[in-house]
Amino acid sequence: MIGSVCVTQSPVSPSFLLHFRTAEPLEYHRSFLKENCRPDGRELSEFRTTTLNIGSISTADGSALVKVGNTTVICGIKAELANPTVEAPGKGYIVPNVDLPPLCSSRFRPGPPGEQAQAASQFIADVIESSEVIQTEDLCIERGKLCWVLYCDMMCLDYDGNVLDACVVALLAALKNTQLPEVTVNTETCTPGVTLEKRHGLRINKHPVATSFCIFDDSILIVDPTAEEESLATAQLTVVTDEEDRLYSLHKPGGTSLSGQKLQECISRATARQREIQKLINKVIHSVKTAQ
């Protein structure tokens, strides 16, 4: 009987399903996975609908809003002028930050960022550094004197799982949307002059896209987990890849082990996802351009 809940015309009453889900969430999910589908009607390797809006924050230098199912992440990029560090005088820098405020889910408490938010920030910083999505040399205005700092703030507005994927898409789209004003350095007074009317975009070298998976009962692999699936899963895994099929991160913080064959499955799914997202970003940017 449990196995048949997947079928649209189910013989069980809706209230029974609701109680079943609350009382035995793991059994409830298993009964769907046995039939190779998931409670929200998706197949195991199917993503939720991803929507993208760019330039949502007019006061930021670049911004994007991403929705993956119910999960919503907004990214704003703020550019500031600063002195380059002594170790890298010819480079600017990028400071990412992921915020998981109490607004987005009851699991987050107010106060300093928790472990998950800090781990997510570190993950995004590692992806930026590994993929060299932007050459930090491009952010240098005058060697040893002046450079741009890009503060990339990602905030989750609605937490329904898979926040890493949404953050990476939001970051990439916001970077593509970023327009930096032109800066000229006055040679006599050594003061920078900013021309706000003249702006130019950033050079994006790579298009890294993250794809997250959950492992259920040590063997079943599902893509794009919801918050409920994340909490019931035995392990999580995130793969970051770009258009040239290079890998930038295989992030598996722990949990049950994974065979080589399953890993290969994850990587090929991630490659397909990268193509979908890149197409989506290009389409949205194109539509914004034609609307202007």
């Binding site: 993929s131 895994l237 890998l247 930038y248 295989l250 598996k252 913080p253 082990s257």
Partner: peptide, 21 residues
Amino acid sequence: DSTERRVLMSSTKGSFTVHEL
């Protein structure tokens, strides 16, 4: 892990190909 020699945790930095992984 010690029983099946499978990967429990993975943390990477930098870029690499599938073959290298």
